[in-house]
């Protein structure tokens, strides 16, 4: 059936809106069934959800919504509710007025401030990298299709300059047509247990953190590049100060808070320019409870991140399997990045 106003475009299937909506409805799970699995009150959940839809449609104001549900939510969720910040007051276009926000029983504050407070203080001591985990990565080479999206995701996440790429995929073709094979080996920093780079740094600017990640202190690195010479994996890159200014407007406006340090804008003569850089296992994301960008983005789910010290973790089981191996095992570096053949 064609749409009523006859705006059919050539080459575009003529499907009406109603059909789409019907498809969505068919896919939607029954809320009552879904909430039955949760401890919290099913009726309250459905009622709040229906009202939230009204707020979205504009039938109900944010203030009215919270006046109606604040007390019930506080009674149902207790401390969990009171300690959770209300995201509605985050932005300038907030849906809740300041007065209404102040009268509510839950914590009121922007998510950013709450997130900033919790980062690094989670363990109560030590700051970045002080976790009990031993972070490890397992890359399943059977699942890797060589799409390089890990490399792209890494560049986007860490905002690395030209010539610096914390993750690369080593791609090689073997054999002659028609008997050819292709191996793709994604290569981040191995976060070695015995890192040669740490051994050679004359100023101890690169060192191993408690959580197994090899850190670089950009405020201490003198840029002698001895670590790059010592690394058997070619995982380290020198920041020559180049920028993507020609490709992207204001490319240096934002930098990634590598190793938990926010350095603001990328500027000339400011670290990490003139320093050596490398993959940090996205420490800043790990600290927030997120996976590294390359792991999250991997289309084939080939990359896995977890705690190698936890015997129940998936990565520990995979790293222990007969398929597992490390790069250059005879170097004695004992990488915390494992591959599955």
């Amino acid at each position: 059936m064609s749409s009523a106003d006859g705006e059919t475009l050539p080459g575009v299937p003529s499907v009406g809106r109603d059909e789409f909506d019907a498809m969505v409805d068919a896919e939607t799970t029954d809320p009552r069934e879904e909430l039955a699995d949760v401890d919290a009150d099913t009726d309250l959940g459905i009622e709040m959800a229906e009202d939230a839809k009204r707020v979205a449609r504009g039938d109900l104001s944010g203030d009215e919504y919270w006046a109606k549900h604040d007390a019930a939510a506080a009674a149902e969720f207790g401390d969990d509710y009171r300690e959770t910040p209300n995201p509605a007051v985050d932005a300038g276009d907030q849906t809740v007025s300041t007065e209404a926000a102040e009268s509510m029983q839950c914590t009121v504050g922007s998510m950013d401030t709450v997130a900033a407070e919790s980062v690094g203080t989670g363990d109560g001591e030590g700051g970045i990298g002080a976790g009990d985990e031993k972070w490890g990565m397992v890359i399943d080479l059977q699942k890797c299709v060589g799409c390089d999206s890990c490399t792209v995701a890494c560049k986007a996440e860490n905002r690395t300059p030209p010539g610096v790429s914390y993750n690369v995929v080593m791609e090689e073709e073997h054999g002659e047509f028609p008997n050819t094979t292709r191996t793709n080996v994604p290569k981040p920093c191995m976060q070695c247990e015995n890192p040669p780079c740490v051994q050679v740094c004359p100023v101890s600017a690169t060192y191993k953190m408690d959580d197994g990640v090899v850190n670089i202190d950009y405020d201490r690195c003198i840029g002698c590049r001895y670590c790059m010479i010592a690394c058997p994996y070619g995982a380290r890159y020198f920041d020559f100060g180049e920028n993507y200014d020609d490709e992207v407007d204001e490319a240096g406006e934002i930098t990634s808070p590598e190793y938990g340090v926010d350095r603001g804008k990328r500027e000339e003569n400011k670290s990490p320019i003139g320093n050596v850089r490398k993959c940090s296992f996205c420490t800043h994301r790990l600290e927030r409870g997120e996976e590294p960008a390359c792991v999250e983005t991997c289309v084939g789910d080939a990359r896995n991140m977890g705690d190698l010290d936890d015997p129940d973790s998936e990565v520990a089981a995979m790293a222990d399997s007969s398929r597992a191996f490390q790069l250059k095992e005879d170097e004695g570096t004992d990488p915390n990045v494992y591959y599955l053949k």
Partner: peptide, 26 residues
């Protein structure tokens, strides 16, 4: 002149690394 951060040339006298040949050399 070879240091990426020439302004930090005195750092090896402040921070050291016993296993680094370069640290000893300086």
């Amino acid at each position: 002149i070879d240091l990426g951060r020439m302004d930090r040339m005195y750092f090896p006298f402040i921070w050291r690394q016993l296993t680094s040949a370069l640290s000893w050399e300086v």
